[in-house]
Design a protein around this nucleic acid. Structure first.
Lengths: 351, 351
DNA sequence: ATCACCGGTGGGAGCGCTCCCACAGTACCT
DNA sequence: AGGTACTGTGGGAGCGCTCCCACCGGTGAT
């Protein structure tokens, strides 16, 4: 008795061949069924599906990946240390959007931190080994070499905040310009006259765009955008505090502040209060992100909401398209896709 | 010209066969080198390593997994919705311990949430497909069917808080009993006489053990453990608030509270203050977890620290051993391993 | 009736690796 | 001298899948 071909060593699990035998069809047909090919008659498909159910067949991912030359996984790369990842609700929300959109596709999502040099080297190796079919990049700074590495390796990628107006990678972003505008327009509509702006790090493109929105909203309203009313806050609590302090010294007559993030708005709020200013009576305050902080501040903070989970969804959709496009290897490098989602002002008691 | 065997379609990447040709050795030898087999002479090994470096060879994971019948990945399963995962610093710290210990092993870590029914079904499929070589289970409730599923599928697993004293799975835990004791002993040493305890959910084994430690420390000190001084708090802020309120009504003369978690301690702190009690003058307070909350409370909270990152490390070490043990399929089911790491009381101003 | 064509199907030939058997060579015993 | 053992090595035979070519029979055009 030859023991040849009786059953593999994969823990006794049925294989595609077993299914084919059971259903009385060829291996190719079973493969077509599990891959949803339209070139299978209804009767055959039903028979194969029955056999799959009876045997409890689950395709072997490794074999699939090997034969089809794809990894069956995509990576969400966070160029930050883990601690920041957990601290920022931004990532959590992004992750849930990504997960939701991905749950249909039979792709595994890998979460990769690239905060330290060590981790970055590991990532580079990882990408070089083509262990993922595509990459999602979030929270990338303007001078980060990561996007170039990815481009160079020819790995499909989508970035979640373009690094500049001429971003080479397919990107998803929220309308930072519009968000900045809406904050200012809201304050103007409330009768505020002297509106200051605490910016984020201006090497982050989104922060720059919020500033642009702030300026142009003022100009369009027939005012001059006074540069003395603009102060950088670097997206940090400490930066926000310093910026607010300086603004108060320089422009004690201000009656509104638009902060580039909720964290900075919270810091500004403290400084204002310490200076004896009441919110919103003396000074109106608007933040950005509509994070948990905004809702829990006293008074609750008016803030510009970004549809982060939608952004996650959009990233996956674009990435899947990139991956699919890749096979024909056709017209690459020409038309790049950029999706911009709109923001929404959430008015609360602070303005 | 036959195009046979020239180069695979894997994006032009070199294969093990290319390395073998380049080094002038057989394929088996190259395989031995990359797998660190000792049965290779030094000279040959050097030659192969040189060839690998020159070609920039990276083994194909899928092929490896297929041939060796292993997945090359392990899963960290969190039976909670994502939101809680991000909210609890516990997980973040655990993850970093796990990551640190894992970075040497060439295993991929998958983070899997199993909060919803849908996610659980997905996970079951995942495990059934043997896409991971082992599973790390954290934060599992006593009645969760997950551990049984894993056992049934014969997947190596380590659990991070045993479900009972007779946990069947290999487990890692901190010394909850000792932690409870140390909190009480600390309060006794500070001269406190009437020490209350707000427990966590008692269907969580660790919470039960903390309670045991509380009781026995009191008995060992020659006091009776008054059950009227024990009140369940369910590990939640709201639960902690209610428990403290009830304790104050029932035992207005208490002069110390040991809470089963920092969150509950924070809630208790509020209630005490509203009741006009000063901390630590009137009532001393001790928490559990030594989380960020403890450090930021006013006054800073004395708390029992668990070495969470060490626990993560230990889990990986045990899991790797389980996976290695599995091959010989020898004496299974007999000796189970249980590691208990010691806790440490961190004294601060609240006691 | 002849031919091209197309939906539906079977199965060979790999994908790149690991496992394991076979075998050469050396060393050490009887 | 012949046996035994062990180290180091080569390469065949898969692992379970996808891809693709060949083929079969039924249509519609010629």
């Amino acid at each position: 008795m030859a023991s040849h071909g009786v059953r593999g060593r994969s823990g006794g699990r049925p294989t595609l061949r077993d299914v084919a035998a059971r259903a009385g069809v060829g291996r190719g047909t079973v493969s077509r069924v599990i891959n949803g090919s339209p070139r299978v008659s209804d009767g055959t498909r039903a028979a194969v599906e029955a056999a799959i159910a009876e045997l409890g067949f689950v395709p072997n991912t490794a074999a699939r990946a090997l034969a089809a030359n794809r990894a069956g996984a995509i990576a969400l790369v966070v160029p930050e240390p883990e601690t920041r990842f957990f601290a920022e609700p931004y990532f959590s929300e992004m992750l849930s959007g990504v997960g939701a959109e991905l749950s249909d596709a039979e792709l595994q999502l890998l979460l990769i931190f690239a905060g330290s040099d060590r981790e970055r080297r590991r990532l580079a190796q990882y990408l070089a080994a083509h262990l993922v079919d595509g990459v999602l990049l979030v929270s990338v700074h303007a001078d980060d070499p990561l996007p170039d590495l990815v481009t160079q390796l020819g790995i499909p990628a989508v970035i979640s905040g373009p690094r500049s107006a001429t971003e080479a990678l397919t990107s998803v972003d929220s309308d930072n310009y519009g968000g900045g505008r809406s904050a200012v327009e809201h304050l103007l509509a409330r009768g505020r006259r002297k509106i200051a702006h605490i910016t984020g790090r201006l090497d982050v493109y989104g922060a720059q765009r919020r500033l642009d929105g702030y300026r142009e909203a003022l100009l369009d309203a027939g005012r001059t955008a006074d540069e003395l009313l603009v102060e950088p806050g670097h997206f940090t609590e400490e930066g926000g505090r310093r910026a607010m302090t300086r603004l108060l010294e320089r422009e004690p007559g201000l009656d509104a502040v638009f902060a580039g993030s909720d964290v900075m708005a919270a810091a500004a709020c403290q400084v204002l209060r310490e200076a004896g200013r009441r919110i919103p009576d003396d000074v109106a305050l608007v933040g950005y992100d509509d994070s948990a902080i905004a809702r829990h501040m006293e008074p609750p903070l008016t803030s510009v909401r970004q549809p982060i989970d939608e952004m996650g969804r959009a990233m996956i959709a674009l990435l899947l398209a990139e991956i699919a496009d890749r096979r024909p290897a056709a017209s690459r490098g020409l038309e790049r896709r950029h999706v911009v989602l709109r923001t929404e002002l959430v008015p609360r008691a602070s303005s």
